[in-house]
Design a protein around this nucleic acid. Structure first.
Lengths: 126, 126
DNA sequence: CGTCTTGTCTTGACGGATTCAAGACAAGAC
DNA sequence: GTCTTGTCTTGAATCCGTCAAGACAAGACG
């Protein structure tokens, strides 16, 4: 748990849903010498440790967030790719038990809502 | 709607959840001369036409399936990346209305279940 | 029938994101 | 004090997907 890793963790905390390029830029503010490798490695380590969570909406690079442990999901804008958090409407984990899991041992249900954010809505329908 | 496109469509029908490399290989059996470009273009066209659907589980390349129009979701194996179809347990679309959509105009809820397939379960816990 | 237009296919090069490989370096174990 | 381990730097490589330019076939239209 070294300085680069702490800076990466802080960057993920401060910039939720940022992609790796953004995080690399942020981390290089206090630590100009970090390599992208260290950031990738740190992100993997932090992900394995459960301190950050990786999300990969279709069509964009990997993004990371620091909100872990609570069952929240994401809305992704089809226009600009912005990601926002949402809590599932139902209190429990409604979709965690599909009708037929084909023998899979499930440990997580990931939900992604697709739509258009207010800005893109305003831009396309003025 | 040309021969390459029909072959691509047939390949997606015959190989659900296959990635583009696999589809390219399959299409080249009857049509050895097709370029990857034609396959990519065909897949995009078919996706736009609603005849196939693209899915991108985190950590693997784009996959395509021909089951469209019904509200089904996917289980993905963390070990080998195998994808299988599941129908949502609840008849309606339970998660389509999150508590707070942040002003987004939602049009789709995508659900991915993560776990381990029977083969990987057997391999890791003998 | 001949020309024009449109859209698809081929070829080849490009770009971004991520990973691989090898060596340097620092810190703790013994 | 040396050894070992794990992390970081540097640099190259890989993989997926896209862009760009030209060839080519088919239908539209005169």
């Amino acid at each position: 748990m070294t300085r680069p890793r702490l800076e990466v963790l802080a960057a993920v905390h401060d910039h939720p849903h940022a992609d790796t390029a953004t995080l690399l830029r942020v981390v290089r503010e206090p630590l100009p010498a970090v390599s992208h490798q260290a950031v990738y490695d740190s992100l993997h380590t932090l992900t394995d440790a459960g301190l950050v969570r990786a999300i990969q909406p279709a069509g964009s690079a990997t993004r990371y967030e620091a909100r872990v442990g609570d069952n929240h999901h994401h809305v992704v804008c089809r226009g600009c790719g912005v990601v926002a958090d949402v809590d599932c409407a139902v209190g429990e984990t409604p979709c965690l038990h599909p009708s037929d899991a084909h023998g899979f041992a499930l440990d997580e249900a990931e939900v992604v809502y697709w739509g258009r954010c207010p800005q893109c809505l305003a831009a396309t329908t003025p």
